[in-house]
Design a protein around this nucleic acid. Sequence first.
DNA 1: GGCGCCACCCAAAGCGCTTTGAGAAACGCC
DNA 2: GGCGTTTCTCAAAGCGCTTTGGGTGGCGCC
Lengths: 340, 340
Amino acid sequence: MNLKQLAEHLNLSQTTVSRALNGYPEVSEKTREKVLRAARDLNYSPNARAKGLATGRAHAIGHVLPISDQHEMVNPIFGDFIAGAGQTYSKAGYEVVISLVDDKDEEQAYRSIRSRGNVDGIIVHGPRMTDGRIALLTELGLPFVVHGRASKVSLPYSWLDTNNGRAFQRATEFLLDLGHRRIALINGLEFMDFAHRRRVAYGAALADRGIALDPALMRSEEMTEVYGYRSAAEMLALDNPPTGFLVSSMITAIGVRRAIHEAGLEMGRDVSVITHDDDLGYLRNGHDVPIFTATRSSVRLAGMRAAEMLLDLIRNPARAPLTQLMEAELIIGSSTGPAQ
Amino acid sequence: MNLKQLAEHLNLSQTTVSRALNGYPEVSEKTREKVLRAARDLNYSPNARAKGLATGRAHAIGHVLPISDQHEMVNPIFGDFIAGAGQTYSKAGYEVVISLVDDKDEEQAYRSIRSRGNVDGIIVHGPRMTDGRIALLTELGLPFVVHGRASKVSLPYSWLDTNNGRAFQRATEFLLDLGHRRIALINGLEFMDFAHRRRVAYGAALADRGIALDPALMRSEEMTEVYGYRSAAEMLALDNPPTGFLVSSMITAIGVRRAIHEAGLEMGRDVSVITHDDDLGYLRNGHDVPIFTATRSSVRLAGMRAAEMLLDLIRNPARAPLTQLMEAELIIGSSTGPAQ
DNA sequence: GGCGCCACCCAAAGCGCTTTGAGAAACGCC
DNA sequence: GGCGTTTCTCAAAGCGCTTTGGGTGGCGCC
């Protein structure tokens, strides 16, 4: 069923039918009514490609996930982010298209996304500190919003980020205030911007209290459970083990907890743990009784907001870049306690 | 840059340029060479909408996630599945389009996906035991592959599934062989087909040894960490607590482990746990030293294979439905031991 | 009755590509 | 040199939609 057939069925021109369906005023209410009913009855919906070709809009948003040998963005965050964004999109009649792009041919990939024209804008995931994609997309004139920031990029661009620095500063201070002096950082990969910021904030908070950084207490890897376990196990075996852990994700913190248990220690009493919590749907940090003391910031909410920003950008291409910084809340769970 | 401009630039007709780019034999190698170089230099890539309109193929695959109030498919599995499928797609030049559809207007949604024509086929996620989508899609003539099965649907259709029944039967028998008699099932939602099969297999294995089902030891909910924790905590507080747990996902098993620890028990000694393990990238069950005894089946691999099946179906529309059953392997970790 | 004005409606062009049906150029053969 | 083939190239139609630039009929008004 296409427009032409529908028009013939109704004994109307394609123009009139199209106008009726798209809410143009040049058509009488009676006609519009008739057209809408027929469309529903005959189960007509316009061909997206043809519509896109004619209007120049794809009504789709691209989510580009960089992949490389060292690192892969398909992580637990992504599902929740998409779920949030998807909610916003579907209200606005937009679709999500996902591209996995190898960062070897990143430039080529973005250019081709641009000229293939099947998305009206894109969300950039996993920004590095110095991320070439921002300049590239700006040059290409394709609307985009970065989930996160790129510290070393000075161009103006639209982004939405959690205040990772502030969050980790507060978390570090929280442990310091409890009397901890040996505080470990089990961080994500530090060429990722968010992890870099956390690292810097942690360092600054310690320096503020005159505590020197100990490289033996700092790790930076992909945030898996096993990584948390291994790191914590090794650190707890040191002559001078940490009494507090700052961890970059719930999954990793679960690994840390496992190591603590295996060492015969109790979390919250012998060893304190604070983690960042993205508030993932299936991995709730117990909203009533938090398991972990955590810096919480909903990634699903971030998805919704980033999507709104992007749609806004698409509708008003002339608009200046939008930015939004979300504060994480520090929630107190039972994984922290005074230093022994 | 579009075809016309490229053709003008080369002083050729659009036809010739198009043929050169798409590898048709009617164009000389010399010309083709020239065209390809120009395309690369000028960063031309064809407009996907126009191409799709002309060819009738979208070069995109839809992944449809049902959402409802009671249940939401955006779960940890999804990221890995897409990562696997995406690998196959990008090799074949296909994109992924994600639609979140509310199951209230499911029928409408699938019909509209069909007629909007921006995907060539779809992967159906999260099949229920009696899933209306299968009949609907068959009727619509849209190629599709189901990730999982629908037990109560008798139509032939293409699917790829893990042998959940066999896996949970083996797991149950494994615990029985270790002497466990009170075995709990912390299952997923049992209107989901995979969970139903697990439930049936668990029941059958117990019945085989003449053990009656105890409703107090059976749960069926969304597979979160908190659910695992709460269920296990409650069961361990029973007068006659279980000595073995069969759990439907790693995340939930982590919750179970937490409850066991909090009860002052040790997993693998006082209480045994077997979980299903989807082999998620960021939540590895320790490939060298498994944390949990588990039935393992890579969901990423499932994604790759399902994608291949679908592409096959798209290329040969006349082909009979394809089916593929993946066996899970039972890996022995340290979370199980003889019943006390 | 003739005029202008709305309210409706339509034919046709155009979006960027593929593909058909045919023409020109080059070649070998007698 | 003329013929049939092969090789290369082209103009134009068509995919399903939107949108421009008119038309047509009915109404009130003088």
